[in-house]
């Protein structure tokens, strides 16, 4: 059993929830999302984000608009769709449940 592998899997599980949570507050473009994720040490390499965003967008949870940038190519600003919002809420409640479950188990020790 590789500890790094387990850690990575735990991170992966909640990554979607975190991205959706970030976007729930504000629309954002990938670098914004990356900065927040990096701050909370949730992401190791930036490359992870792009396939994830594309998939969420293709699943209809996200939508985006183009915005010109002064420093580089035009940026994709992502925001939640209605479906994305309900998806996010559902994930959030399941996260709460998980958290409670873990705490409950630990407190029994």
């Amino acid at each position: 059993m590789n500890i790094e592998n387990t850690k990575a899997q735990m991170r992966k599980g909640i990554l979607e929830l975190c991205i959706l949570s970030i976007l729930e507050k504000n629309e954002a473009y990938p670098s914004d999302i990356l900065n927040e994720l990096k701050d909370s040490k949730l992401i190791v390499v930036e490359g992870t984000l792009y396939p994830l965003l594309t998939r969420l967008k293709n699943d209809g949870l996200l939508t985006y608009r183009w915005e010109e940038s002064t420093s580089g190519p035009p940026r994709k600003y992502f925001q939640l769709t209605e479906l994305g919002k309900s998806f996010s809420n559902e994930l959030d409640s399941s996260w709460q449940d998980l958290q409670k479950a873990v705490q409950k188990i630990r407190s029994k020790k």
Binding site: Q9, K12, E16, V44, V45, E46, G47, T48, L52, R55
Partner: peptide, 19 residues
């Protein structure tokens, strides 16, 4: 180094499939 090698990309969906 910032972007990471493709094998380092952590895609929950892909992981779910392999597990």
């Amino acid at each position: 180094a910032i972007m990471g090698q493709p094998e380092q990309f952590e895609d929950p969906e892909a992981e779910a499939n392999t597990s």
